Amino acid sequence: MHMKYQNKISDELVPILKAYTSQPAPPEGMPLQEVFRGALQQMAQQVAVSSTDQLRVENKFFTNSDGLETQLRVFTPLTETNPKPLLYWIHGGGTMSGLPEQEDSTLYNLALELDCVITSVNYRLTPENPYPKPLNDCYEGLLHVVGNADEFGINKDKVVVGGGSAGGLLTTSVAIRARNEGGPKILLQAMAYPMLDIRDTSDSNKEINSVGVWDSWMNHYGFQCYLTNVPESEYGKTVPNMIEDLSNLPDAFIAVGTMDCLRDESIEYAQKLAAAGNQVELHIYPGMVHVFDGLAPDAKASKDFWSARVAAIKRAFE
């Protein structure tokens, strides 16, 4: 029996999307990554936070395997708990754009609510730095933080990795790499609307191509940037939904909206992880688009999503 999702955006989102998509068009011929980079830098300026009496915000650096200094943005609640659990965060932006600061307000609030240290890694962007460079930065950053647990004030036995969109792609890729290489033990991979498949053949990929937030053509472009010069024969090692062995991975939390082009691949990945013997929690939010929680933080679904993710991470830390 073939089920069809209602192709309908939530009433709560309609006016917000209208405002979002009525912004002036970027200059003709500007590459998509430049458009997104500009938008996310602007967003970062709007939401950036600094230290308060409740929480310390600082930038630390590690040297990656190519010898480059790489930023980790660190959020540390100033509470008695010591050492604290770690939420290792990977920002979104289609792998081709984005920076840790664009999620400052989210991470500030998450750190306080979870009473954990959050580190957000400023990985190299594609297409200039295609796979495996962004993943190397994310994985090596995790090794650095866990390997310097005392400096970061973290309990290396309580590690969750998370992120949205491209951050979801890199989150699960870090988890797979940690399994393959005997790396840090990860208790949970927390993914919001993750990019999981370069094949754009699903219903949601075909149907959701004109919402204006993260349409399937943008997603395909982002994946092509990520996999620049990677032969198709290697996709089975790099594209989560094409990886054959998904056994022995951390528990997973996956959330996606029904009006997100990534809906079907998120659901498929959840099923594949579960079929491989992993614990999976899947949330599907009716009428919600990509990055709905960022666009409409006060929408009921956004609040539900926030609570569900916090609860899942807390359970993992317990």
Rank of each mutant, 00 (worst) to 15 (best):
N229M: 12
P134T: 14
Y193T: 01
T81R: 15
T79N: 14
M96T: 12
Y123H: 08
T63A: 01
A316N: 06
N129M: 06
A39T: 07
W214S: 06
S165F: 12
T95A: 12
Q279S: 15
S173T: 04
G212C: 00
V291E: 11
L78Y: 08
E244N: 12
S22Y: 02
V49L: 07
T119I: 09
D137Y: 03
M195C: 03
W89R: 05
N229G: 10
I267Q: 08
Q71A: 13
D260T: 11
G141W: 01
I118H: 11
T228G: 04
G94K: 06
M1I: 14
P15R: 02
L32K: 09
D104Y: 02
L87A: 10
I254G: 06
A274C: 15
V146N: 04
T21G: 02
K185H: 15
S22F: 00
Q45W: 00
A299F: 07
Y193K: 00
K314L: 11
P27G: 11
E58L: 13
Y88C: 09
G287E: 13
L227D: 04
L17I: 03
R179F: 10
T70N: 03
A39I: 09
V310D: 07
H2R: 15
E103H: 14
F75S: 12
N59H: 14
A296D: 00
K60T: 08
E151Q: 12
G212Q: 02
D203F: 10
G164K: 11
I118K: 02
V49W: 03
F152R: 01
K237V: 01
L99D: 03
L170Q: 03
T52K: 08
R56Y: 14
F75Y: 14
D115L: 05
A44L: 02
I90G: 03
V256K: 09
F292K: 01
V49C: 15
P127G: 06
L78C: 15
R177T: 05
S22K: 01
Y285S: 07
E265W: 10
A255P: 01
N180P: 08
E58R: 06
P83Q: 04
V256I: 02
Q279I: 10
L114W: 07
V57Y: 11
E103K: 12
Q224I: 02
T201P: 00
K303F: 05
L187E: 13
M1W: 15
L170H: 07
L262N: 05
N219E: 12
N122K: 13
T52M: 13
E128A: 10
K84R: 15
Q41E: 13
E58D: 13
A276M: 09
L110N: 13
P130W: 00
T21K: 02
Q279G: 15
